[in-house]
């Protein structure tokens, strides 16, 4: 677009000025101004102090736990999310619509509800926790509990990004592969999976971003033992309760940087996928 081009392409439809003005005003008041306040606070702290605060042992441990468990949970969800999307798109079986609807449960169920339910389930006296205890395993109040809560939270992201792409995939390509003598497994690996890769990566990044910031479903099951099972968002809450605004801001600024980086990555993946496959 040349610099002389108008800001908006002429149209006969009314209401552009009003709606764009309202959109920008509301966006500024609700999102941009508050985030700006955080960035302003963080910049007045300076990079030096943020890094110093982040390198504090307890903060570092919390950031590492959040980052690693989120990565692990998103990675764990990739094969299972793919499997579920495949089964829902390709096969017809009794209860298919029910299971399709239930995928969104982690989106719809309030995080605090999920949190106490998962804790009750995985605690040493819970249904699954007691079975694990027989094997000498402890799930709740350990990083494994954090991981399982993040698996719950992240699953729909993978399924819901892969499902539509899988549904629109051209079956003729698979027929062609079969005609050329490829076995079913080879066809799936080299004809079906490649066009799904951008969707898988997007779903992975979305699940990861959500998991890093997740609070409600994690804090009950985590046990919140400093240096062991304390997640980064909880640290912000703790610092706020101690009126340590600088510390809370520093941790939040680091987390915000992680979310922005993830968001950027998602946009890059989608731009590349669009250039290559012409959809997504």
């Amino acid at each position: 677009m040349t610099p002389t081009a108008p800001f908006v392409k002429p149209s006969v439809l009314p209401g552009f000025r009003l709606t764009i003005a309202f959109t920008l005003l509301y966006l500024t008041l609700i999102v941009l101004l508050p985030i700006g306040a955080l960035l302003f606070r963080a910049s007045s702290l300076g990079v030096h102090e943020i890094v110093a605060l982040a390198l504090d042992g307890r903060t570092l441990a919390a950031l590492r736990l959040s980052f690693m468990t989120s990565l692990a949970a998103a990675a764990f969800n990739v094969p299972f999310g793919l499997l579920i999307a495949w089964v829902l798109v390709r096969y017809d079986f009794p209860g298919r619509r029910f299971f399709d609807a239930i995928i969104d449960l982690p989106f719809a169920l309030p995080t605090a509800v999920a949190g106490i339910a998962l804790t009750a389930l995985y605690a040493p006296k819970g249904w699954i926790g007691s079975i694990a205890a027989l094997a000498g395993l402890k799930i709740a109040f350990t990083p494994v509990g954090v991981f399982l809560a993040l698996v719950f939270v992240g699953l729909p992201f993978i399924v819901r990004t892969v499902q539509p792409v899988l549904g629109e995939l051209d079956r003729e390509l698979e027929e062609a592969a079969a005609t050329l003598g490829a076995g079913r497994l080879r066809t799936v690996a080299s004809v079906v999976l490649p066009p799904l890769t951008p969707a898988i990566l997007t779903g992975f990044a979305l699940a990861f971003a959500r998991a890093v910031g997740e609070y409600g479903s994690v804090i009950f099951i985590a046990g919140n033992i400093p240096y062991v099972s304390e997640i980064a968002p909880l640290l912000i809450v703790i610092k706020l309760e101690e009126f340590d605004y600088a510390g809370a801001t520093a941790v939040a600024a680091i987390m915000l940087a992680i979310s922005f980086a993830t968001l950027l990555l998602i946009n890059l993946i989608q731009a590349r996928a669009r250039a290559r496959y012409g959809h997504v």
């Binding site: 306040a37 955080l38 971003a209 939040a252 915000l256």
Partner: peptide, 17 residues
Amino acid sequence: LPFSVSPVVAGLVYVLL
């Protein structure tokens, strides 16, 4: 943007303001 911001950070920004 709000989808990729932690809910705790969302609360914090209003406290800071």
